[in-house]
Every structure is written in structure tokens, then in C-alpha cells.
Design a protein around this nucleic acid. Sequence first.
RNA 1: GCCCCCAUAGCUUAAUGGACAAAGUAAUGGCCUUCUAAGCCAUUGAUGCAGGUUCGACUCCUGCUGGGGGUACCA
Length: 507
Amino acid sequence: RKKIVKLIGNSIKNLQGEKIFPEFKSLEIQVERPENKNYGDYTTNIALKISSLLKKNPIKIASIIEKRLSIKKLRIFEKIEVVRPGFINFFLSKEYLQGEILRILEDKKEFGNSKIKKNKKVQIEFISANPTGPLTVGNARGGPFGDVLGNILKRNGWNVKKAYYVNDYGNQILILGHSILKDSQAQYKGEYIDKLSKAVIGKNPKQVGKKGAKIIIKGIQETTQRLGIKYDEWLFESSIYKTGLVEDVLEVLKKRKLTYEKDGATWFKSTKYGDIRDRVLIKSDNSKTYLAGDIAFHQYKFKEGKFDKVINIWGADHYGDVPGLKAGVKALSIQKPFEIILHQFVTFLEKGEKMKMSKRKGKYLTMDELLDQINPDIIRFFFLKTSINTHLNFDLDLAKEQSEKNPVFYIQYAYARICAMLRKCKTQNAKGKNTIQNLKLLEDASELNLIKELIRFPEIIENTAIDYQVQRLPNYALELVSAFHKFYEECRVLTDDKKLAQARLGL
RNA sequence: GCCCCCAUAGCUUAAUGGACAAAGUAAUGGCCUUCUAAGCCAUUGAUGCAGGUUCGACUCCUGCUGGGGGUACCA
């Protein structure tokens, strides 16, 4: 795809004087894969775009571009076609596709990586549920999403740090303490509270809360590991306070005249930075709000060039907190990109009924309970397959009962088939190094189609690093595997023809 | 009231403004003496409603209907 974009770029350069049509410079060359295979492997609408600028016949423009490309007699293409209303379609040649296998075999795990963002540092923070109870299935949607998004950014050359922010400071820890002590101010309920009551010694609610939070966060760490999430750092709100950064940041805002006193509280003029209302930083009881700590935390994230970019993944219930924090980051003159991604909720269905959950009432399904029943690969796959902008319905009975009809097994089955072939070929001694001569034997439609699916991978990685549409990956996995199963049905890999067997094993 | 997200096949979901809307599941029929039939092939089936922008709209804009979330000196 990259090559085609480049080729088109060269061929339209002097199509018209740039002075007359400055829009040419900003014209994005779109090369995509048409859904219909009759339209080739790649297609571009560039002629249509140019025609609307020049008010000329798009077919004529497309033909000019096509001629300029064809003159070069590129071996990449079998043919280039102009079709009405003005698309240019590209058909890859067999030779090119066969050669791509060599490239993939050479790149191995590096295949699909890009070095566009070399040495740039990004922090991606996700889940960050309060340490007042075990991780619930409701908190966890951001987990697989953040984990995979981080992996994708890594493949694009970013230096990625995945972070969990532990809110072990503030009112909720005190309430946790009361709950463990089971006094009149107790709010949290559940089995875990009963266990903590036995495990934690002490009478001071704040101290008890702190100890309880420590135990809870340890459990959360284990749960995220079970889910296959690999965090690079666990950052504690309490240590942000210990460094004095919160006071420093409040001081800075005060000096910049961005705070004021009202009703005994200290307010932040966030409306100056596009917020709909001002926010409280210090409450009238002299304690700090969550926002105060969070702004300081973001100062910490960006200070001394720690990160070039920060991404936060939050649940949609934090929608109201976005403008306050964004205003805070702006007020501190932080110029680096700072993104907040919101994910919608997951609704769990049991026997066709919505499960209503409440942490305070002790009525919820924990992620550990879910992991006890369902394989983490399946949970991750189901969470990732759907765009985070939509509400996800997770049918528990379906996930449990229909495990054999599960799309995850469809993918894993391909892996099992591949493993079986590799096992057998060892005993048959059919394994060897591939050359382009061998690979030229791959001519079946199912073989060429599988290669076409394989070379989509770099494009998938690149696109996803730009638009964060992580659901593209599980969907790609399904399409790739579908091409594999078809190939497996059509072509016998371990044939008597040793050269052909080698080529197919390579594929 | 105002703000954000969503509405696609019976169900769960795909589709950077492109050419015939794609999968799984459910339903029906076919394919195993050959590398795992947890597979392959075929058939049936969809863009909530009303307008607008565009050569072209599931996609963008306006209104409506329905669902979820937000609108605290809680986190």
C-alpha cells in the first residue's frame, strides 16, 4: 500500500501546475482494499478527488495517471485498471506476492513493525479502578483495550509504558476503613470486606483503610495478570501527595491567578480553558478534591520530558471529569499531546436478564469469578471485538455454553492445524529453507489469497496506531484464519513433491 | 433542560465518504479410506424514522423516536 501511495504521488506531481492548484499539495492519497475482489487488491479514488478540484472528467484523469504508472512496467502489478466513475484498481502480480513470503520469513516477529515513532515515549493509563474492592467485570473493559493499544503503539516504534494509577488517598480509603471496621460509617459490603475484617488489625479507620487498600491492590495486580495484561508501572496517588507536587501545582495555579475563594473552598477557573463550570480544588473542610491530585499527577507525567504523549482510558461514567482535567493540563502550559479515551459500558446478561451491579451494595460479578468460568483469551477477544464506542452486551450463558462454537476456537483451531503439520514434517524431513524458486510453485487461488491477507498486517497495525480502532485486530484475525482454513482445505501441504511441500510450509 | 455514546440480518457485532453492506450464531442442504470435520461449500436474511449536503452516505449535518452515561465542595 505504501508503495502504491508513493507511485501515485509521483505520477500526479506535475499533472497540473502546483501554483494553479495548491490543493494538490494537501490532497491525501487514499489507497484502500476494495471489498469486492473484482475491483483488485488495492484501489484509489484520487482521480475522483482531483476531478472535483479541476472540474474535469475523472475517467480522463484516471487514465492519465494509469498511463504514467504503466509506463514504468512495474513487476508489482499484474494489471492496473481504470473503471467508472473514476477509480484506479491495482492487481498484484503472483511474483510479487510469492516474494512477500520471503520478506515475512525474514522479518519473523518484526513483520508489520514500523519505526515511525522511534524513541518517542508514550504513557497509556487504564483501568485504574479504586482499591476499595476487587476488580469487577464492569471496571475492566479498558484493560484488554489499553493492553492491546499499547502493544500496537510499541509496534509503531513508540516506547510504551502501561500504567495503573492507584487512588489510595482520599475519602474512599477512609470509607473502606470504616467498612472493614464495620462501624456506623461503613459503606462497602461483600465477602471481601468480611475477609479484610479478619486480616487487618487496627482501630484507626484511616490506617485500616490503607492496609485494606494494600491487600486489595495486590489482588487487582493478580487479576490483571490473569487477564494477560502486562503493566509497566503502578503509580500511587499517596506518593504523589508525599512528593509535595500537589501543593506545588496549587501554588502555580494560584500564582497564575487561576484560583479563587468561594464559600470557604478554593476553586479553579477551568472555564477559562473551555470548561462549562469552575471546579473545586480544596474543599471547605480543607481536604483536596480528586481533581487537585489528578492535575498534579499529570504534571508528574509530563515533567522533565518523561513522556511525549499521554493517553488515559476511562469509563464513560467519568465523562464529566474530562473538561476539568483537560483545563488543568492546559493551565500548566503542557503542550504535549494528552488524550482521554472513553469506553462505554459492558452489560452482562444472565438468562437473558441484565445483571444489575453495585459495588457499595456488594452486588457484582468480579473479574476473578469471570476468569474462573471463562478462559482469558475468550474474555479478551469478546471485549476487544467490539468498538469501545458502543455498549457491549456480554451474554454469560452464551460464552460458557457455546465455547465450541466460539470464534476464538476458530482461530485457535488454525493454530492447532499448523502445529500438527509442523510436527509431522519433522518426522518426514520435509522442512528446508525456502527460495523464490520454491515459492513460485504457490499458484492456487487460496494460496495467493492467504498471502494477500498476510500482507494486510502492517496496514492493520499502522491504521490502528492512528485511529485506535482496536476491534480491527480480532476481526482481522478472523479473516486471516478464514483464508488459512480455506487454503488448508484446498491444498495439501505435506505432499510428495518436496519443493511444493517446502513452499507451503513456508506459507 | 443541557452535554457525550449508541441504534446495521432473529441474536452478538464489522465496514479511514466509495463501486454489490461483512462475519459469527441461529435455519436448511452438501463434503471425511489422504496434514485435526472445533473445518470447507451452498441457500435464506439487515442500515430506527423524516429531511439535507455530495458525482457517491451505515458513515457528515438538522429534527424526531428509543437505549446507556454525565451534569457534586463523591471518587
